[in-house]
Design a protein around this nucleic acid. Structure first.
Lengths: 129, 129
DNA sequence: CGTAAATATACCTTGACAGGTATATGCTCT
DNA sequence: AGAGCATATACCTGTCAAGGTATATTTACG
């Protein structure tokens, strides 16, 4: 099991991670909230633990699992290289739509007026560094 | 081949995506830049295309492939739920380190002074909405 | 029109991983 | 100590996807 990407490729593991984002949980709690067999939960938790996505502490017979940030940050870092791209993409699209708006603003009825909606992408904050 | 996560689980596919972030490329260019056999490149490109990660246009015998933003944005959206978490995590860590600094600031030599370094996480900009 | 280049597809083999069943380990409480 | 709960591990099996080899398709060009 190599990269963080293979880890989060598994739907059940993603479900577990999403569950843990709110608070730490025991195996049993995860088991019944997600409705999967205990043995499955345990095995996925093992994978997640060995990959550093979660850590556990012992509470009597239970083990409490909680998230660890690093591996997810790693995914985020990989994704970073594409953000500039899709910002550019959305910008270009907007410019295109603006042009269409303008070109159309002379003639007839004007049935569909386009609205500027908040596309909350990261705009250049000079963080190019 | 279900989710976008399975698509990017494959290292060669991630390599292709990273390559395409700079500009569109032909199959042959990808092939030799990444040093993998043409048949492999073509098959991965097929997967990427069917998943919407790339699109292609025909240029004589070549096909030029370029990125499409949507699937990567989807990954980004999934990741979003964890950002608040790891921001909180880093904040807590910083507070902890601050406390250690303070507690240590009475006594002896003070060999290692900790420096505030720029952890460029997304700080609350009220974008909770 | 035939050949060569660029790319796609078909088929096969192999390996890896997820899930199931059964069982082991560890802890608590009486 | 023994019973019972919570969790982990071992083993087996089916599935699926990646890579290799061979071949098909498309296009340019002499």
């Amino acid at each position: 099991m190599e990269s963080v990407f293979e880890i989060i490729a598994e739907p059940n593991r993603r479900a577990i991670l999403s569950l843990l984002v709110s608070s730490e949980q025991s195996v049993g709690e995860i088991e019944c909230q997600l409705g999967m067999p205990q043995t499955t939960v345990s095995k996925h938790l093992r994978v997640l633990r060995e990959a550093g996505f979660v850590e556990s502490t012992v509470d009597a017979q239970r083990r409490l699992y909680r998230l660890r940030p690093e591996p997810l940050q790693e995914v985020d870092m990989w994704l970073a290289q594409f953000r500039r791209f899709w910002s550019a993409y959305v910008d270009a699209l907007e410019r295109h739509l603006d042009r269409m708006d303008r070109d159309q603003s002379t003639p007839t009825k004007q049935k569909t007026r386009r609205k500027r909606r908040g596309t909350n992408r990261e705009r250049d904050k000079g963080e190019t560094k």
